[in-house]
């Protein structure tokens, strides 16, 4: 526990170094303060915004899109990955589809999504789903394909039907892989929801950034960036906590 705390303290150092470099750049006059405000100004504004209902409303909209997209991706990716890995015929269909679709830059679909789904939440949520799906699907697929057969056999011998082993054995045995995929998917979801809001939106953190840029509100330009970074940090922490609880019986990963 002490070692863990020391490690997380150590992890703070590079972040502090980053902030120091930022401060140094501004203080050293390398970039005029009109283009890059000092960190204190940005954090100060962020602090003010955190009690501003309008700002919180925008953050809430972003969070809603992020979570909706992530959860839908989870709801599609996990069952599809499990079934694809364990049912040969389905795997034969899913695998080539994944190979073709995974490398496609989903953001390129966004104009088409706007045209068909409109400017509001739907197009942005679908984009998050499209990007968050693949890390979850691929991790689940790989995890489920490598489940120790003797775990499944043990359950089969105990009377579990072949179909039921999918959620009674394969799903829990794949949990470590699913959580790893989810962690990547959450980071991607943060990026994508922000990008989508930057491209076309009337609300959300990405929209705030674009609005600030257009009106040369330089400090306000950096605030949404800090906010989304903070959201990512919190979500990652929450997922790590969930992981520690859910995987408490699993051997530690190397």
């Amino acid at each position: 526990m002490i070692a863990l705390r020391r490690e997380s303290l150590l992890g703070l150092l590079p972040i502090l170094a980053l902030l120091a470099a930022w401060q140094g750049t501004v203080a050293g006059g390398l970039v005029p303060p009109a283009l890059l405000p000092p960190p204190a100004a940005v954090f100060g504004r962020l602090g003010q915004n955190l009690v501003d209902p309008a700002f919180l409303g925008h953050a809430g909209v972003t969070l809603y899109r992020l979570f909706a997209g992530f959860l839908i991706a989870l709801a599609i990716g996990v069952p599809l990955g499990l079934a694809g890995a364990r049912i040969r015929a389905l795997g034969a269909v899913v695998r080539p589809l994944v190979r073709v679709l995974a490398p496609v830059p989903k953001i390129a679909l966004y104009p088409a999504l706007i045209l068909s789904l409109g400017f509001d939440d739907a197009s942005k949520i679908v984009l998050v789903v499209a990007d968050a799906l693949f890390p979850i699907l691929l991790a689940t697929f790989a995890g489920a394909a490598s489940v120790e057969p003797k775990l499944v056999w043990s359950a089969r011998a105990a009377g579990t039907s072949a179909a039921a082993t999918l959620w009674k054995v394969v799903l829990p045995a794949t949990l470590p892989a699913i959580l790893t995929g989810s962690r990547i998917a959450l980071v991607i979801a943060c990026i994508v929801v922000f990008l989508a809001e930057m491209i076309t939106s009337t609300d959300g953190l990405g929209y705030l950034l674009v609005r600030a840029t257009r009106t040369f509100q330089i400090v306000d330009m950096f605030v949404p960036l800090l906010a989304i970074s903070g959201i990512g940090l919190l979500l990652n922490g929450a997922l790590a906590l969930a992981r520690r609880h859910l995987l408490r019986g699993f051997p530690e990963e190397g």
């Binding site: 003797k150 995987l247 699993f250």
Partner: peptide
């Protein structure tokens, strides 16, 4: 024709469910 509770396996690798106590 398949596994059944009339035949109980015990494996060298134990094959216990790690998510269960």
């Amino acid at each position: 024709t398949g596994p059944g509770p009339d035949r109980g396996p015990v494996f060298q690798e134990f094959a216990l469910f790690p998510w269960k106590t």
